[in-house]
Design a protein around this nucleic acid. Structure first.
Lengths: 104, 104
DNA sequence: TAAACAATTAAATAATTGTTTAATTATTAT
DNA sequence: ATAATAATTAAACAATTATTTAATTGTTTA
């Protein structure tokens, strides 16, 4: 199990995660959005999978990768714990953002 | 300006951040808690400072490092945006955790 | 079964990152 | 001024990580 921290530290991997926000996707589809080669992509996907940030689904000769949202929550949780702000301040922050959003 | 992602990817640096949660501290004080040498610590602190995760305060021959909580919120914010879960699910999650805590 | 395609693994190399010892800067106290 | 302390920077080295080309595995379709 790879560290989630190292997994998200790489720019390319964060781009991959961002791309997967929209929908599940095969590596071939992904390479159209990026500059790097198939093996490089494959290596990044293995790291993301090992960190449990994405899941893999085999369908014939294709493999679909999708975001693992459950894990993402854990990461936010760690950040929250790490910096020790109390839950209320985080909730307030989020509510504030939500209010702002409503005004746009 | 160093990437906040690379700054938190390193185990030692996350330990330093955890230590700083309690109170501001000088490098000499920190080395008592860790295995690594002063220059190694200094190098980590420079990276954390450059990522804006800690701030530095000079007082005579000492330098006090403390956590920059503002930046921490931004990081959580990014995670939240990155994984695109809606704010409600995050709030629910936090409320759940809070409830659990009350039961302990 | 042979050709084509999707994706991975392997091996080699390039690039980045982290740690160490030694030297340096800056500040305080004698 | 000089010695002592706090912390940093510099230079060298070690370790890790990322990228490439080439070879391999598994699946579909003609």
């Amino acid at each position: 199990m790879e560290s989630v921290w190292k997994a998200v530290a790489d720019d390319s991997r964060r781009e991959i995660l961002m791309l997967l926000r929209k929908r599940k996707m095969t590596p071939s589809e992904m390479t159209e959005h990026f500059h790097f080669t198939a093996p490089a992509l494959s290596s990044h996907l293995r790291i993301l999978k090992s960190a449990d940030l994405v899941t893999e689904e085999k369908l014939g000769k294709n493999r679909y990768y999708s975001l693992n949202e459950k894990k993402s929550l854990e990461v936010v949780n760690f950040f929250e714990k790490m910096w020790g702000y109390n839950l209320n301040s985080l909730k307030e922050y989020l509510e504030n953002k939500e209010r702002k959003k409503g005004h746009e």
